[in-house]
């Protein structure tokens, strides 16, 4: 039992190392890209705003409003996307008996969650340094919110990893819906100020709730569109569905043939 656990931990450790080595091909540029990507969004956002000249959707610092939401969404979605491809990318390693599908998926979740947590902290600290504003009003709300975003990413990612292997073209489908989901996550606007018909649709997007949860940890007087229960139930259902598929289709998932 202890032996099995230590083999499992060693395997996950080795897989994390392997994921870090290959995250963006042999140039190891991936980690810089993780920082550049949000900067590009910020530049685009600032450009549009200076052109349109609108005021901040909420609070004095529009950048903060936008950045926090973007980082939360990207954290969650990146975990989903990376984890979704975990099994396919590691097929040859599954020929090694100690390496199980579960380990492969878990390693990607860990690497992606750590990467985006570091990026998020760096940006919040960066903003603090540049603007002199301590951005976070209520860390006791923000932290659980961010953890919920990680949980959503991990659970949905696990389910997507199974579906990618079992349903043809599921990865294409995920690629297709990730942009609409981003638009529907309230990153660029104040969700509560949206028309009810629109709100009735985007309410079902779990990423919206993660974004709003984290935002309500940033601003004291923020009125979020938020159901913590919906977010947590959604993620938990994904996790159980993923575990169920893993159990039912174990042979098809494991089979390297």
């Amino acid at each position: 039992m202890v032996n099995a656990l230590s083999t499992c931990l060693r395997t996950i450790g080795a897989l994390c190392r392997r994921e870090m080595l290959t995250r963006f091909g042999k140039y190891r540029f991936g980690y810089i890209w993780a920082f550049i990507e949000p900067v590009l969004y910020i530049v685009a956002f600032a450009g549009v705003r200076s052109f349109v000249g609108s005021s901040s959707p909420f609070g004095e610092n529009a950048l903060l409003f936008f950045l926090i939401a973007l980082l939360t969404f990207r954290t969650s979605m990146s975990i989903v996307r990376r984890t979704g491809g975990a099994i396919d990318a590691n097929m040859p390693l599954l020929a090694l008996p100690p390496v199980k599908t579960f380990d492969v998926v878990l390693a990607r979740i860990v690497v992606e969650a750590v990467t985006w947590s570091v990026v998020s902290v760096a940006f919040v600290l960066g903003l603090w340094t540049v603007s002199g504003l301590w951005a976070i009003a209520r860390p006791d709300v923000l932290l659980p919110g961010y953890l919920a975003a990680l949980y959503l990413g991990a659970s949905l990612g696990f389910l997507v990893a199974m579906l990618t292997k079992l349903v043809p073209f599921f990865d294409r489908f995920m690629a297709l819906i990730s942009l609409p989901l981003m638009v529907m996550s309230g990153i660029f606007y104040l969700p509560i100020a949206m028309p009810p018909q629109f709100l009735a649709v985007i309410w079902f997007n779990p990423f919206l709730h993660a974004v709003e949860w984290v935002r309500s940890g940033v601003f004291y007087t923020y009125e979020p569109v938020l159901s913590r229960g919906y977010l947590l139930w959604f993620a938990t259902c994904c996790l159980f569905l993923g575990l169920l598929l893993n159990k039912l289709y174990q042979r098809r998932l494991y089979s390297t043939a």
């Binding site: 395997t11 042999k26 040859p92």
Partner: peptide, 23 residues
Amino acid sequence: FSGGFHNSLTGRENVRFICQIYG
């Protein structure tokens, strides 16, 4: 002739990976 190696990793990195999982 196939299986057990990750194609994007170098030979050395693959050796390291296998050593790690087998302790």
